[in-house]
């Protein structure tokens, strides 16, 4: 389907007086190709009969065609749509690729079953999950967010405070450092069996594990951030009359913040892993549990649907973290763009 390119685009749009050939091969051409790719997806849903029994094929086709229409409209009025138009233009090549991918997926599964069913469900069966199983999926999403957020905030706070303390005070470092070395590198999931029968509820056990997984990287990176602050900063602040509390709060912590954010990022990654495992094993709610449940019923479409949601949530969480970092660390130059 990716053969729709300049030649097709030219014939399709030739009568338009305002559209020049140069425009077509440039910004308009890609947008047109994207629109056609999505149109192809919609038509491929309708053209061939389904090999299985799926109720959302037509809705999917209509959706795809609506998207194609939106892309077409957006492409030609991008100049009047402000930043949304610019964003569409920038992402047009991706829309082409994605449209081609879903078309291929549709054809390979629902139409000709080149990929074995039920392990590779077609797009319409995933759409069906989102429409028909929405309440259960949403419940799972909220349960996961609640668990993750609680554990992450507790772990990040404790990790940050511990990191600052051992970075600042040698006495605290003397006692905490060996404990950290002994317990920290242990994967938090190794605590699972113990946690689930020592804690009063599976929810508190999971919160503890997520906090543990988050806390270790945050502690270590905060600590190294505080420890690596140049002594020249302290000298300057001291000659200007700074007291120890000022040195910690206004010198050590801001100077260590770039490291702290690396720790928060790493902590987020490892806490996701713990969250899913904890939900699969002990907690009777959340996306991990949903995946496990879907597997029990061999409901592969539900699994893919849950995976997509999970991926959006994790990516969204990391985006949020990076946005916060960019806000707080505007003074840094050359930070990684997420």
């Amino acid at each position: 389907m990716s053969t729709y390119s300049v030649s097709d685009a030219t014939t399709a749009a030739a009568p338009r007086a305002a559209v020049t050939f140069a425009n077509l091969s440039g910004s308009y051409g890609v947008g047109l190709a994207a629109s056609l790719a999505w149109l192809a997806f919609g038509l491929s849903c309708l053209y061939w009969p389904d090999v299985g029994d799926w109720s959302r094929t037509e809705s999917l086709a209509i959706g795809a065609i609506v998207i194609a229409a939106f892309i077409l409209f957006g492409t030609f009025s991008a100049d009047y749509l402000g930043s949304a138009g610019q964003a569409l233009r920038k992402r047009a090549p991706w829309l082409v690729a994605f449209g081609a991918f879903v078309t291929l997926w549709e054809v390979a599964t629902a139409k000709f079953a080149w990929l074995p069913l039920p392990f590779f469900p077609p797009p319409q069966s995933i759409l069906e999950v989102y429409t028909d199983d929405l309440p259960k999926l949403l419940d799972s999403v909220f349960a996961s967010i609640k668990l993750q957020l609680g554990g992450y905030i507790i772990g990040a706070t404790i990790g940050f405070v511990t990191g600052v303390s051992i970075g600042w005070s040698q006495k605290i470092g003397y006692w905490v450092h060996p404990v950290l070395r002994f317990i920290g590198p242990l994967p938090a999931t190794a605590w699972l069996p113990i946690a689930f029968f020592t804690f009063p509820s599976s929810w508190s056990a999971s919160t503890f594990l997520i906090a543990l997984a988050t806390g270790f990287p945050v502690t270590v990176l905060t600590w190294s951030g505080v420890a690596s602050v140049s002594t020249a900063y302290y000298d300057v602040a001291r000659t200007l009359g700074a007291k120890p509390s000022f040195l910690v709060l206004k010198v050590a912590i801001p100077a260590a913040l770039p490291h702290v954010f690396v720790g928060l990022f790493m902590g987020l990654g490892s806490s996701f892993a713990v969250l899913v495992v904890a939900e699969m094993i002990g907690v009777k709610a959340g996306l991990g549990w949903y995946l496990q449940w879907a597997q029990g019923w061999a409901a592969y479409a539900n699994m893919y649907a849950a995976l997509i949601v999970m991926s959006l949530l994790c990516s969204g969480a990391i985006t949020l973290l990076f946005r916060t970092r960019d806000r707080l660390l505007v003074w840094q130059k050359g930070v990684v763009k997420w």
Partner: peptide, 25 residues
């Protein structure tokens, strides 16, 4: 007050906030 060879400005503070450091401390 000492002025060092390196300006050792605090990179996370604007010019104004750097200058205000002593009074703030």
């Amino acid at each position: 007050v000492v002025v060092f060879q390196d300006p050792t400005l605090f990179p996370w503070r604007s010019v104004w906030d750097n200058v205000a450091l002593g009074l703030e401390a």
